[in-house]
Computed example of a mutant assay.
Amino acid sequence: MKIELTIDDTRVEAELNDHPVARELAQALPLDLVFNDFNQVEKVASLGRSLTLRGVPDADAPGPGEIGYYAPTQGLVLFYGSPGRWPGLVRMGRFSYDLSALRALPDGTRIHIALAPTDTP
């Protein structure tokens, strides 16, 4: 499922995996979320609600350029580094944004997340 992140004025292509957690997130779009740096590995924003964990592993180890969901804090995560394997961490998809630019975003950066527009003939 294709989605789009808008970071400042830059549109970023992304894709969600096909599993229940990602589908539930997609149903909640569009979202405007405020991201902050965490542990010099990722940018995290609170969704303010939990997502289902049915149909996904109990733990995962996302890598740079991936989108994740961290169940204990109800956080949506954009990874620019590798956090290691954590319980409650779910790989949600991938994005195509410069990882150095993501790392450099200041705390409090607002990112708009929406389903990608579809091309119609």
Results as ranks from 00 to 15, higher is better:
Gly84Trp: 00
Leu51Cys: 09
Asn17Gly: 01
Tyr80Phe: 14
Arg85Phe: 00
Phe95Arg: 03
Arg11Gln: 10
Val21Ile: 11
Pro64Gly: 14
Glu42Met: 06
Asp60Phe: 12
Tyr69Ala: 07
Gly84Glu: 05
Pro87Asn: 13
Met92Ser: 03
Ser96Ala: 15
Asn36Met: 06
Gln40Ile: 12
Leu51Ser: 08
Arg49Gly: 04
Thr52Arg: 07
Leu89Asn: 02
Pro87Met: 07
Glu66Asn: 05
Ala22Glu: 02
Asp32Leu: 05
Leu16Lys: 01
Leu53Asn: 13
Pro121Thr: 05
Ala114Asp: 04
Asp8Cys: 07
Ile111Gly: 08
Phe95His: 07
Arg11Tyr: 01
Pro83Gln: 04
Ser46Gly: 13
Arg110Val: 15
Ala45Asp: 11
Arg91Leu: 04
Val34Met: 13
Pro20Phe: 11
Gly68Phe: 05
Arg94Val: 08
Ala114Ser: 11
Ala116His: 11
Glu4Phe: 03
Val12Gly: 02
Ser82Phe: 04
Ile67Ser: 07
Val12Phe: 04
Met92Gln: 02
Asp32Pro: 03
Leu16Asn: 03
Leu115Asp: 01
Val21Phe: 08
Ala71Gln: 15
Gly93Pro: 01
Glu4Leu: 08
Leu99His: 00
Gln27Thr: 14
Gly84Leu: 08
Leu25Gln: 06
Val34Ser: 14
Ala116Val: 05
Arg103Thr: 04
Asp37Leu: 09
Ser50Gln: 13
Asp37Phe: 11
Leu115Tyr: 00
Pro87Ile: 06
Asn36Ser: 14
Leu51Asn: 10
Val44Asp: 13
Leu78Gln: 06
Ile7Thr: 00
Asn39Gly: 11
Ala101His: 04
Leu16Ala: 11
Leu115Ser: 11
Arg110Gly: 04
Ala61Cys: 12
Met1Leu: 10
Phe95Cys: 01
Thr118Trp: 11
Gly55Thr: 03
Phe35Tyr: 15
Gly81Ala: 12
Phe35Lys: 08
Val90Pro: 08
Arg103Ser: 08
Ala22Leu: 12
Met1Phe: 05
Thr120Ile: 14
Val12Leu: 02
Gly65Pro: 03
Leu47Val: 09
Pro121Cys: 02
Glu66Arg: 09
His112Ala: 05
Asp8Asn: 11
Ile113Met: 12
Ala59Gln: 10
Val44Phe: 14
Gly63Cys: 06
Gly48Glu: 05
Asp119His: 09
Arg11Asp: 03
Pro83Asp: 03
